[in-house]
């Protein structure tokens, strides 16, 4: 199933993100022992309400990441609009305003590739509903570093393009329902 000792979770989503995230994150307990970093494609030029909305539904703490913010277990960190979110070290996040990737800033690939480098086999990467192919390369990087790759089953996703693109590049990623993904995350935390 998941690796022997998961230390962090990264999630990428685009169109249909809110529904998909609400199918997973509220199912995790307050003291969930892993940090979760999330990239959702959001418009660059306005404040995002995602953290507030998720915060109301989740028992874990949810917030937009700050540059050089220490990584704490039990917290969901969202990439802010118009910035890439990167895992700097196991204990520290960083932001960047480098060029958009796949026309998007934040980009899922940028988070996933940096996190794969930092956490190696201790990382779980999840691609949810979306209409681009951002995240496919990043998920592949996670697999190559020995991490765990999960994908929302395209037939169950609001917009199947992104999970399908991820599966095309990472055929050994597990294609699951949101309930199954939640169960995986709960299980990874108990090992």
């Amino acid at each position: 199933m998941t690796g022997p000792s998961a230390r962090a979770v990264v999630i990428g989503a685009s169109s249909g993100a809110l529904e998909a995230l609400l199918g997973i994150l509220p199912g995790l307990p307050k003291g969930y022992p892993l940090p979760i970093m999330v990239v959702v494609h959001v418009p660059p030029d306005r404040k995002s309400l995602l953290a507030e909305i998720l915060g109301m539904k989740c028992r874990m703490g949810v917030r937009e990441a700050e540059d050089k913010e220490p990584v704490c277990a039990g917290t969901v960190y969202l990439a802010p609009p118009d910035y890439h979110l990167l895992a700097e070290t196991e204990n520290c996040l960083s932001l960047s305003s480098e060029e958009p990737v796949h026309y998007s800033r934040p980009s899922i690939d940028v988070l996933f590739e940096s996190a794969a480098d930092v956490y190696g086999p201790g990382l779980i990467g999840i691609i949810l509903s979306g209409g681009s192919d951002d995240g496919a390369r990043g998920l592949q990087a996670i697999r190559q570093a020995g991490g765990t790759a999960l994908v929302q089953r395209p037939s169950l996703a609001l917009v199947p393009v992104m999970p399908q693109a991820a599966l095309d590049v990472c055929p050994d990623a597990r294609s699951l329902s949101l309930e199954e993904i939640t169960a995986c995350l709960l299980e990874a935390a108990t090992v």
Binding site: L86, E88, T89, S94, S96, E98, V110, E113, S114, D117
Partner: peptide, 9 residues
């Protein structure tokens, strides 16, 4: 410099 971003570039 921030490692993650330098590596990427």
């Amino acid at each position: 410099y921030s490692t993650a971003s330098v590596k990427r570039r």
